[in-house]
């Protein structure tokens, strides 16, 4: 998401993240190959957390390599796509009822909002 001219402002990014319940969480496996899984997202007070099944690959991957990116996106139509990716390090918060919760530390955010410019496809 490199195009700064269509990036969201910090306030827009925070509002967008707070409005979303699901993120795709991407990690690396033991061989360094990428993997991904949907997770329940929660964003409060500028702290991003996510919760996913403890039996899945993401939980296992993050305990070994905390590098993570959480991506949320909205696609009502091609000219209105918006997305935010938060890169950081995942810190385990809780393991409960078969689900693991992680917090995203050292967050770095990328965003785009196609509504800010009508892109060429």
């Amino acid at each position: 998401m490199p195009r700064p001219r269509i990036a969201m402002t910090p306030a827009e990014t925070a509002e967008f993240l707070a409005s979303k319940r699901i993120a795709i969480v991407a990690t690396l496996d033991a061989d360094g190959a990428p993997d991904g899984e949907p997770a329940e997202l929660s964003c409060a007070g500028g702290v991003l957390t996510f919760r996913l099944p403890a039996s899945g690959p993401t939980h296992r991957n993050l305990l070994r390599d905390p590098r993570v990116v959480c991506t949320v996106e909205e696609f009502p139509s091609y000219t209105e796509i918006r997305g935010v990716s938060v890169h950081g390090r995942a810190a385990p918060v809780e393991l409960r009822s078969g689900h693991a919760t992680f917090r995203v530390d050292e967050p770095r955010t990328e965003s785009f909002d196609f509504r800010k410019v009508r892109p060429e496809p």
Partner: peptide
């Protein structure tokens, strides 16, 4: 068709593209 593509960045960290 709603797809998230996960790739590896030059610094070795994962990244994700809608």
């Amino acid at each position: 068709t709603r797809t998230f593509l996960v790739t590896v960045r030059p610094d070795g960290a994962p990244t994700c593209h809608p």
